Computed example of a mutant assay.
Amino acid sequence: MTTTPEHDRKIAEMTFASVYPHYVTKVERKGRTVEELHEVIEWLTGFSKSDLDALMEEKVNFETFFQRATLHPNAHLIKGVICGYRIENIETPLTQQVRYLDKLVDELAKGRKMEKILRI
């Protein structure tokens, strides 16, 4: 699936720190914990809680965030639709990676078991 260059640029320039509070609100509102959120983020990116704190303090955008990340080898198993896009068909790598993260947060908020979220 092709996204527009404007869409991809907007995602690349968005800071992780601006989106993170929305992730926290979403999962807590559905009865999940911040610790579970961090577990999901660490699984996908390799970033620990202290890494995330440093990245947020630095106000890195998603482009830098994913350049520094070590994507989990099973990330390609994340499939489905998020924000109207089928993840596995997104052609722009960065946009796909951001949507991976969005999908994992959605699965966590929907009460999916951690083993399923982490593709174990």
Rank of each mutant, 00 (worst) to 15 (best):
H76C: 08
K49H: 10
D53H: 15
P73Q: 05
A54F: 13
V60G: 05
G46P: 09
S50Q: 14
N74Q: 13
K59S: 08
L71R: 02
S50V: 14
K79Q: 08
K49G: 04
F47W: 14
I82K: 09
T70H: 06
V60P: 09
V60W: 11
I82H: 07
E57F: 14
L77E: 11
S50W: 15
G80H: 02
F47G: 03
D51W: 13
R68Y: 03
D51N: 15
I87K: 02
E57A: 15
P73I: 03
C83T: 12
E58A: 12
I78C: 01
D53E: 15
L52K: 08
C83H: 14
V81A: 06
A69C: 01
V81P: 07
N74G: 07
D53L: 15
I78R: 04
L77C: 09
S50F: 12
M56P: 06
H76N: 13
G80W: 04
I82A: 03
I82M: 07
N61T: 05
E57N: 15
S50G: 07
L52T: 05
Q67V: 13
I82G: 02
K59E: 06
G84A: 06
E63M: 12
D53A: 13
S50C: 07
L71W: 00
I78S: 01
S48F: 13
S48P: 08
F66H: 03
H76P: 09
P73K: 04
V60T: 09
A69H: 04
K59P: 01
F66G: 00
K49E: 11
Y85F: 12
K79N: 06
G84K: 10
I87M: 02
K79C: 02
I78D: 00
L71H: 00
K49S: 08
S48W: 13
D51K: 12
Y85R: 12
